[in-house]
């Protein structure tokens, strides 16, 4: 349920508007918003997979990349990455700094990465270039 619909129902519950007015408002709201059958609509519920879909033209041939990664796999990867010894992280930091990327990997905590993965189900990333189109979303 989206926020605007919830607000309307709250107003109805509080007696601020009548049932007819609430119905009119919800109908108007549905007209404004894309219907569930639109291509961008996603089924509600907990996302299980992260999808990457890319369409591009390479060597005058259409190229399509379609990758589906279980979010559980990303979480497991984060746990696995947490095992990297600090000495290796220091070496990686030094190399990153040498390449002009002053990023401290030791500051990246597994809990933060897990939180990031948890919130991936709310993310839709779309990139539209002259010869390529990429979309990252969860389902």
């Amino acid at each position: 349920m989206n926020e605007q619909r919830r607000d309307i129902l709250d107003m109805l519950a509080e007696g601020k508007i009548t049932a007819e007015e609430a119905e009119r408002l919800i109908t108007a709201l549905e007209r404004q918003q894309p219907t569930a059958s639109s291509p961008d609509a996603r089924p509600k519920g907990k996302a299980r997979y992260l999808r990457l879909v890319m369409d591009a033209m390479e060597d005058d041939e259409p190229t399509r990349l379609n990758v589906r990664v279980p979010l559980q796999l990303l979480r497991a990867g984060v746990r696995l990455a947490a095992l990297i010894p600090p000495r290796a992280l220091d070496q990686a930091n030094a190399q990153l700094a040498k390449s002009g990327v002053p990023f401290d990997l030791t500051q990246l905590k597994p809990e933060q990465l897990e939180e990031f993965v948890e919130h991936l189900d709310e993310v839709t990333f779309e990139m539209d270039g002259p010869g390529a189109k990429m979309r990252i979303f969860s389902e």
Binding site: R48, Y49, E58, D59, E61, P62, T63, R64, L65, N66, V67, R68, V69, P70, Q72, L73, R75, A76, G77, R79, L80, A82, L83
Partner: peptide, 26 residues
């Protein structure tokens, strides 16, 4: 930690079902 690594490795392998990689060119 060998046990930690084993656990994390097992969790990684267990999470693999559902993964799919599909590439198409021409």
């Amino acid at each position: 930690s060998a046990l930690g690594a084993l656990g994390a490795g097992w969790r990684f392998v267990s999470a693999l079902p559902g993964a799919r990689f599909d590439v198409e060119q021409g």
